[in-house]
Design a protein around this nucleic acid. Structure first.
Lengths: 258, 258
DNA sequence: ACCTGAACACCGTTCAAGT
DNA sequence: ACCTGAACACCGTTCAAGT
């Protein structure tokens, strides 16, 4: 039951129906500023729609995002969005793109630090900051099918990864070593940040206690070790886990493979 | 726009509408075997439905699973499923449960090996085997909201985690150390297996080459490093990555924290 | 006891029609 | 040029009715 993908009549290579990256998250090179529509509504365009989608998911979660509701949020019927976005899937890809652009701005527009260790620290903390700013979006970053199979979540921007590899090159990593670092780095971030953002998405930095009741106590009674350990298991130790494992992983990157 | 959860009239604690764990994935203690319905159809029950859901997702992916299609697969209207499963969300939780039970059977019904290092190796390889058997289900295991916030994906079975902690206890880990191991272990598995299963879900152990064209070449031309490295980036190195990082992580667990 | 038909309130998406 | 109304083919879910 595959959806047929109709040929575009205009001769453009339809490809996989990606968004125009130029007008997505970034600002246009100062053009004619269409401010407001006669009706007083904000003028629609792809960037406006994608940013509103980001805001909406941040607030309500990705389950709640529908074309109809997003349209309503922008003062327009759902059908109007299809002029700017090919469909819901591409909208979600665009959301990921906006967030990755934010990451790029945060991590790549500054001078390289003195050591490659500091560089990796800086990059890791940048990605973590983004995942904490958008905990409800991070699962999308982590699990939407990427543009290329070798583009590993959560580092899903060609531009960002290019910059990352440039950085490694600057510190003297050869291509093979760089690939190894990129892989270890992405795996590390995916594991840590997906777990952390999952918690943070439901309870934005809330109390650690009282969570023990969350499982029906009858169930828990069957498992004595979980019973006694659940207070310890409930402690929020993500900060330490992240920092320790990050340092560990960075140390590991210093040793070249045979 | 919250969905109202109506009070059950039968006085049972409705709670969060979980499935009856007894009849889920496991076989019943030999009872009256209702084999076939008069019409010749397989008799419905929760276990049959959940196992069919697992099979269906393995084959078609989780996007394709709808109550209506699952019903059709079982020779029944969608509405008939609601007698055995509270709703779609709980169905998906049940799917996760079935897979976790499979993991339990694979890893917990055998004698403990000689060293805790071997034990962790065995557990890690068990989880990896499950993720490779159900690559299209693994994202559910990784990202459905768990029963308790401290129950970290992908290790989402109270029973399994209890067994894991029992194992650690047997090798002399004290409770604090065990929690530390559990956390590092789950983070490690989540990162590695989510990446690997994502690849494996679309291409079951397929060719490594030709993936380079997957990104429009025009895009890639902007990024010289990605351009030259994409062949290396496309190589399937998950086996080595997993084994190396696992050994590394196990080494790290030997050192107690201050 | 177990399943179905019909209905409800939603989806994403298309397209001719309005301004 | 840009948006809408109406329509289509789907969803999940409820419930009275059938057997």
């Amino acid at each position: 039951m595959e959806t047929e993908r109709p040929q575009r009549p205009d001769g453009a290579t339809a490809g996989s129906g990606t968004l125009d990256p130029e007008s997505a998250g970034r600002k246009r090179a100062a053009g004619p500023e269409r401010v407001n529509t006669p009706g007083g509504r904000r003028a629609l365009d792809q960037g406006v729609i994608l940013r509103e989608a980001v805001r909406f998911i941040d607030e309500h979660g990705r389950e709640q995002l529908t074309m109809r509701r997003l349209g309503a949020e922008l003062g327009v019927e759902a059908m109007a969005l299809y002029r700017y976005v090919p469909g819901r899937d591409q909208l979600l890809d665009g959301v990921v793109e906006v967030v990755m652009d934010e990451l790029y701005g945060m991590t790549m527009n500054r001078p390289l630090p003195g050591s490659w260790q500091e560089f990796l620290q800086q990059m890791a903390h940048g990605v973590r900051a983004i995942s904490m700013e958008h905990p409800k979006i991070f699962p999308l970053v982590a699990s939407r099918p990427p543009a290329a199979p070798w583009l590993r979540p959560p580092l899903r921007s060609l531009r960002w990864v290019e910059g990352f590899l440039e950085g490694l090159d600057h510190y003297g990593f050869d291509p093979t070593e760089s690939v190894r670092v990129y892989r270890a780095f992405s795996t590390f971030l995916l594991g840590h940040l997906l777990l952390e953002s999952a918690i943070y998405a439901v309870e934005p930095r809330a109390a650690p206690a009282a969570d023990i009741e969350f499982v029906e106590s009858s169930d828990l009674a069957l498992y004595p070790r979980l019973m006694t350990l659940s207070p310890q298991l409930s402690l929020d130790t993500f900060d330490n886990e992240f920092e320790d494992a990050l340092e560990e992983m960075i140390d590991r990157m210093a040793i070249s493979p045979p």
